[in-house]
Amino acid sequence: MTRDPLIRAWGWLVALSLAGALITRAPDVTGLAVVILGLAFAKAWLILHHYLGLAGAPSWRRGFDMVVAGFCLLLAALALLA
């Protein structure tokens, strides 16, 4: 296992991207959109924390986490309403 947090973040990003694409092959069940948006939030979290360096800026990290999570929840609500 690599010690470079950037490689670990990249590995997770690739894995989550493939998971997001593969999950759409599953039957179209209610709530699939929530899972897809959950994966999107996890990818955004990795980019903000590791690529953009917010891991070292706790106040900003919390703010961005809350806003992106709220945004994904809003999209999930709109997806479930359709």
Binding site: L13, I23, T24, A33, A40, I47, L52, V68, A79
Partner: peptide, 23 residues
């Protein structure tokens, strides 16, 4: 420059599931 590039990345990981994946 890298921060701008990561922003482009960040936008894509949110745009991709909404446009392409959510049915």
């Amino acid at each position: 420059g890298a921060a701008f590039w990561h922003m482009v990345d960040l936008v894509w990981v949110l745009l991709f599931p909404v446009i392409y994946l959510i049915r």
